Deep mutational scan, measured.
Amino acid sequence: AKPPKTVTVKVEVTNADGETQTRTVTLTNLPKDLKPGDTVTLPETGQTARIVEITP
C-alpha cells in the first residue's frame, strides 16, 4: 500500500474572537484539484480554514 500523500498548506483560520490567523498545517489525502482560496476542515480542530498557499 502506498503511504498517504501529505501536503503542507498555509491556511487562514478565523478564531472565536473573529481574528484571522495564518497557520501552516500538514494534511493528508487532499483532493487533487485543491487550490488556494478553497476551504478545508482542519481535522484536529474541526475549524474551517481557507487555503492561502499549497507547498507541493
Score class of each variant (00 low, 15 high):
A1I: 12
A1G: 11
A1M: 11
K2Q: 14
K2Y: 14
P3R: 05
P3T: 10
P4H: 12
P4M: 04
K5Q: 13
K5E: 14
K5D: 15
K5W: 12
T6N: 09
T6E: 10
V7W: 07
V7P: 02
T8E: 08
T8R: 11
V9N: 00
V9T: 01
K10V: 14
K10Q: 06
K10W: 07
K10N: 04
K10I: 15
V11S: 00
V11H: 00
V11R: 00
E12N: 05
E12S: 09
E12D: 05
E12W: 03
E12L: 12
V13E: 03
V13M: 09
T14M: 14
T14P: 03
N15K: 06
N15F: 09
N15Y: 09
N15A: 11
A16P: 10
D17F: 12
D17L: 10
D17I: 08
G18W: 02
G18Q: 03
E19M: 11
T20N: 06
T20H: 07
T20C: 06
T20W: 06
T20A: 07
T20S: 08
Q21I: 14
T22N: 05
T22C: 08
T22F: 11
T22H: 09
R23V: 15
R23C: 09
T24M: 12
T24C: 07
T24K: 05
T24L: 11
V25P: 00
V25I: 14
V25K: 01
V25Y: 02
V25Q: 01
T26F: 03
L27P: 02
L27N: 06
L27Y: 02
L27R: 03
L27D: 07
T28D: 14
T28V: 15
T28K: 07
T28E: 14
T28H: 07
T28C: 10
N29P: 13
N29F: 04
N29G: 13
L30I: 15
L30V: 14
P31W: 11
P31A: 12
P31T: 15
K32Q: 14
D33E: 14
D33M: 08
D33W: 13
D33N: 09
L34A: 14
K35Q: 11
K35S: 07
K35R: 09
P36V: 14
P36H: 04
G37I: 00
D38S: 05
V40D: 00
T41I: 13
T41K: 09
T41M: 11
L42Y: 03
L42N: 03
E44M: 09
E44T: 10
T45E: 04
T45K: 03
T45G: 07
G46I: 02
G46K: 04
G46P: 01
Q47S: 04
Q47R: 05
Q47W: 01
Q47A: 07
T48R: 09
T48C: 08
T48S: 11
A49H: 02
A49R: 00
A49P: 00
R50F: 04
R50S: 05
R50Y: 04
R50L: 10
R50H: 05
I51H: 00
I51Q: 00
I51N: 00
I51M: 02
V52R: 03
V52S: 03
E53R: 05
E53V: 05
I54Y: 04
I54A: 02
I54W: 04
T55N: 12
T55M: 15
T55P: 08
T55L: 15
T55C: 12
P56M: 12
P56I: 11
